[in-house]
Design a protein around this nucleic acid. Structure first.
Lengths: 241, 241
DNA sequence: CTTGATTATGTAAAAATTACACAAAATATT
DNA sequence: AATATTTTGTGTAATTTTTACATAATCAAG
């Protein structure tokens, strides 16, 4: 980060931040990663201390190549989660003149999808936590608004991108996939129709595995077939429900 | 605009601008409004003098309520075109560290759709010009990239929003509407299927008017039926081609 | 009145979507 | 061991949507 000092401009400049909405899925519900705002070393950066908020922070003017880099850097610093810059999709800019009590701050919101199975261990549990979509606490700043916009963006994107597969473990079952789609789209599907449609796309391949069962009939395990998906996508296909 | 002076911060701040991609349609081709960059009064703000660029400019930290307000304000100042803040849709943030040679500048790109018939007279012809989509000159900064992203965003949005109707005059013909869809989606449609689909939506109403003819059969004139469209939209319809 | 350009129109075939019910697998219960 | 309970897997017929396709009407110009 740039050294603290005196930076002077002829006209006022806003501060710019990047915020991250990180979605995960535990097999039942959509989850979001939040952090607990601590007392920053710098008095000037203290705000909403003790409240939950989206991970994020200030653009480093001198070193962050883009705001997506800011998002990735801050996410790692605040939660321990290490994502690639290209995992972040931009949601939009939030620039209301009074959205930050300290000074004028424009934030660029991003969202990212992670496999909870992969990352749960990485997240620094003292300062961060995964919250169910249906049970989000009050958030600092306008982060509740950002969250709603990010979710609606995810809801849009699921029509065109295989977002389900970025949230599920490598190997998953049809009911899991269906439940995820239902969680994001907030609708219910007929099981047979859902299965038919998915099979029709030919982007799932069956996986033989040492059936670790549950309390009922053992579901078939699948893996996402990325090559087939890429081919379909090139021909302008629409993953629709 | 804030008075020139000395504005000091403990950490470096970027400048923030809003840029506008204003699309129009002349009945044949999609058009974009560009401005010719002049020598600004302030030496420090001079860059790419004499080149074509997107209208846009710096966020006024003290008075612009949001960056969309910046976009609206700058568009009016630079081209004479007076649009409402809610006519701007955000395209995205462009934040590459070297995108502006003067200092670190983050821009938030927006697009807007206008009826050329309405606004052509308003645009200040000395500094601004409408360019065919197929014939865009070299642009300042990364504005060519912004333009491409804005166009692809428009291409997406046309599936869900009646963007065609914001670009056409109040009264238009089916061939005009079809040509516009074809221009934006970069495909050709069968005339009968296009007409059937449009009629099926029931968002067009025929208009009787004093047939100002051309050199061929006089096409039927239509008007967009906003009330029916709003009703359809509430039920989650998808305007699709 | 013929030509050329443009617009309007309908239907049959194919594809996609929807609605819908029962059997199989596994565990828990008695 | 038999039974109940839960969850998963599967196919088909009816409906709707999409696609493919050709001819006749209107107008201006020559």
């Amino acid at each position: 980060m740039a050294k603290k000092g005196q930076y002077t401009y002829e006209y006022p400049h806003p501060a710019v931040t990047a915020d991250c909405v990180v979605f995960g899925y535990d097999g039942k519900e959509l989850k979001v990663l939040l952090i607990k705002r601590g007392a920053e070393k710098e008095a000037s950066t203290r705000a909403y201390v003790g409240q939950w908020a989206l991970p994020g922070g200030f653009l480093d003017v001198e070193t962050d190549k883009t705001v997506a880099h800011t998002a990735a850097r801050e996410l790692k610093e605040e939660t321990g989660l290490k994502l690639s810059v290209k995992d972040f999709k931009e949601v939009g800019t939030f620039s209301d003149i009074k959205r930050d009590p300290r000074e004028r701050v424009i934030t660029v919101a991003h969202y990212a999808l992670v496999k909870l199975t992969d990352v749960r261990a990485d997240t620094d549990a003292d300062n961060a936590g995964w919250f169910s979509w249906s049970d989000i606490p009050n958030l600092a700043f306008d982060h509740d608004k950002i969250l709603r916009v990010a979710f609606s963006r995810l809801k849009q994107d699921i029509h065109f991108e295989p977002v389900g597969f970025e949230l599920l473990p490598e190997v998953f079952t049809l009911p899991q996939l269906q439940n995820l789609y239902e969680s994001i789209l907030e609708v219910k599907f007929d099981r047979r129709n859902f299965a038919n449609k998915m099979k029709h796309f030919e982007i799932l391949s069956e996986v033989q595995d040492g059936t670790p069962r549950k309390g009922t009939r053992t579901p078939i395990k699948y893996r996402f077939q990325k090559d087939n998906y890429e081919r379909l996508k090139r021909n302008g296909f629409q993953l629709e429900f």
